[in-house]
Amino acid sequence: MKQYSGAILLLAVMLVFPLAVQDAYYQHLMILVLLWVAIGSGWNLISGYAGQVLFGAAAFFGVGAYTAALLSHKLGISAWWGLPLGAVITFALALPFGWVCFRLRGPYFALATLALNEIFRHIATIWESLTEGMVGILVMQTFVSKVPYYYIALGIAVASVLTVEIVVRSRWGYYFVSIREDQDAAESLGIDTLRYKSVALCLSSCMIGLAGALYTNYMGFIDPRVVFSLHDVSIAAILVGIIGGVGTVSGPAVGAFIMVAVMEIFRSGGFGFLGKLSSATGSPFVATLTKYISEAHVLSFGLLVIFVILYLPNGVVGDWPILKKKLLFWRRQATV
């Protein structure tokens, strides 16, 4: 039980968070974090554990999102049915895709997933009679308050992390890691590598698809540029995994939190602090600086990734012992 005490404590904090923090802005940020936990966990299962780098998480995210949107837009069914159905449809997409593309190895598979991403983005853009193209689809939001969305997102995030935790301790987990470490050795140990890579991809795609369907319900509007976005979804999913720690259960959760926090601190200029500072001091220098910092928030993330890859190649969770030692060292120096 002791090893889970931290997780249970965190869960308790997460459960009371929307009751303690009434500000819709912070609730919104936490919902984004939770969505990224689900997407990151999905990415981590196929790429971090099974070693098949997924460069097109947005394909599954977008398909989940469009499933929910089209249900309500075309069939008049509640977009909430998109959650179970989105998972089913992404599963049905991942299975044949895996069967065909798992013949490719390493970077070639990654490129195939990138192609899948682009194919779906183009389909969603061009097939206007179905998807409304770049106009996008508007879905009526069910709740005014953010709290219900928060708890649903929390449920999906917790379910994703738990799924990864259970899977990696099971026979499947051993098979996934064996495939990552050496596919030929795994095959000659009697592991049907094609089958288990497909299992990993299907599980991953379900998590990512669920997050996509929830995104539609929460944001109330999607268009191809947003949900099939290469840099905002596919690459961000990889970054969440890398920063948190590839092949660790809690890595994507930590990575999601750091990513959303860093993005937001820069985008909002330190949560509006810099803006207040510039108006208080009236200095044109601070005002210009504020403007540039908030415009450079994407760049800031690039710098963070470079820092993590250089100094913490296994991510914050994977290299936690090293990080802890460094932090302790700084503290000791500070006290001396």
Binding site: Y174, Y175, V177, S178, E181, A185, A186, G190, I191
Partner: peptide
């Protein structure tokens, strides 16, 4: 040799024992 490098010796063997 093709050891599953980032797994312990025990995990290497457990992975094949699952057959």
């Amino acid at each position: 040799v093709k050891p599953l490098k980032r797994m312990t010796v025990l995990d290497n063997v457990v992975a094949s024992a699952f057959l």
